[in-house]
Each structure stands twice: as structure tokens, then as C-alpha cells.
Design a protein around this nucleic acid. Structure first.
Length: 207
DNA sequence: ACATTAAGTGATT
DNA sequence: AATCACTTAATGT
């Protein structure tokens, strides 16, 4: 479990590091696999050691909208709030890449909260930072035009995966942005004509 | 060869 | 910006 200590040696105190190592288990998921769905009970706290996770809101009518990503060394703030209140998930979390997680049983949540100040700080920080990203997502959905949102979406994804070529279909983009495939295709065509991107079948290249 | 999925486009609301 | 209807192209079996 070297990765974990490397990632967190400056964040958690030694006793906590050891305790986490003791009770945590490693779980691996492949890209595109689902970590948790809306309505599912949260039974554990996942800390991301490797890869990234896409967090989306999803309703019963299969409408979906992308909210933010989880990166290495981060965890879902949703999980914290759900664990504290013993509520089920409000979001859909799917693996953007192959993922390695450190799974911690929820019963340690309260205990560590009062016992370790570094754990408390970690929880507060993730809640704060994900809340900021959520606000940012709301701003975009409410105030930005679709073509601007689309470009932001593509750039963000490209940066996350550190790849100029995105292997994604127009319909998948449409699903993430909760719009129709036809609209996405047209906007992408416009971006291609403007020389911002180039299009292939199931892939988009940022220029 | 045939079926399925991805993408392009005009017309309408 | 969404929906419909249709076409064309690429891929899978």
C-alpha cells in the first residue's frame, strides 16, 4: 500500500495513516464501471488512489447531467454527508479511467472525526472543494450557452485524461450534458469548421 | 451479407 | 435548442 502513504503522508498524522492502512481495503474498477448509483446506500468511504471518477446527477427518467470529477487523493463529499446522515446516494459515480480505491468502512467516520484533526480537515476540505465545483457546474448550466459549455466540457475532459484525443461519441457527450445528439453534432461541426477541433468516428481531437 | 451504431443534415416547432 | 425523419458511413457478427 505504498501509494496510499505517499499520497497522504503530508495530510494525515502518523497514527491515522497507520489506522487507515489497517482497516482499509483496496478495490479496483475498470473504466466505465459504476461505483454507485442514486438510491444506493453508502456503505463505505472510497478514497481515490489512482484514476478518476465522473460524478453525475441522474433522475428516474434517465436524464443525466455531469457535475464534476474526482481525482487522485480525493474522495466524494457526497459520501461524507451520506455517511453522517445514513442516507443513500444522490448521485451517479462512474469510472472515467481504470480506478484504484481505498475502501474504508463507514463506522470509522465519526470516530476519526473527533479523534484526528487532520481527518476533520480533510473532510472539510473535500466538502468545500466539491461544493465549489458544484456551484461552478450550476453557473454553467444556468448562464452559459450550450456551445460554450460544450467547449469547456471537452477541454476539462482532455485535461483530466491528459490526452488531446477524446474517445467519446456525440451521443455520450449529449448524455453527459443532458441535451440531444443532433444538437451536439451540429455544435461540434461548427467547432470543427472554426478550426478548434477535428472530428472522427467516436473520437474528438482538440487542436 | 446483414445488422447495428455513429454521425450529418433539412425541415419544423 | 429540441425533435423528427431520413441519409450515409463505419463497424461488428
Amino acid at each position: 500500500m505504498t501509494t496510499f502513504k505517499d499520497l497522504f503522508k503530508n495530510i494525515f498524522e502518523l497514527n491515522l495513516l497507520n489506522e487507515i492502512e489497517e482497516v482499509g481495503t483496496i478495490k479496483e474498477l475498470k473504466a466505465q464501471e459504476t461505483l454507485i448509483e442514486p438510491g444506493q446506500a453508502v456503505r463505505f468511504i472510497p478514497i481515490l488512489l489512482k484514476g478518476s471518477i465522473k460524478v453525475s446527477r441522474k433522475n428516474s427518467a434517465d436524464n443525466e447531467i455531469f457535475l464534476y470529477y474526482l481525482n487522485e487523493g480525493e474522495t466524494c463529499s457526497m459520501t461524507f454527508t451520506c455517511c453522517m446522515q445514513r442516507k443513500s446516494s444522490q448521485v451517479l459515480a462512474t469510472c472515467e479511467e481504470d480506478v484504484e480505491l481505498l475502501i474504508i468502512p463507514i463506522e470509522y467516520m465519526d470516530k476519526w472525526m473527533s479523534q484526528y484533526s487532520t481527518w476533520k480537515a480533510f473532510v472539510m476540505n473535500t466538502v468545500q472543494s466539491k461544493f465549489d465545483e458544484l456551484i461552478n457546474a450550476v453557473d454553467q448550466i444556468a448562464f452559459q450557452k450550450l456551445d460554450e459549455r460544450l467547449l469547456v466540457f471537452l477541454k476539462e475532459k482532455s485535461e483530466l485524461l491528459s490526452d488531446k484525443i477524446l474517445y467519446i461519441s456525440h451521443s455520450q457527450v449529449a448524455k453527459d450534458m443532458n441535451t440531444s445528439r443532433v444538437v451536439v453534432s451540429r455544435l461540434l461541426k461548427k467547432l470543427e469548421n472554426d478550426g478548434v477541433i477535428s472530428l472522427g468516428r467516436s473520437n474528438i481531437t482538440l487542436l
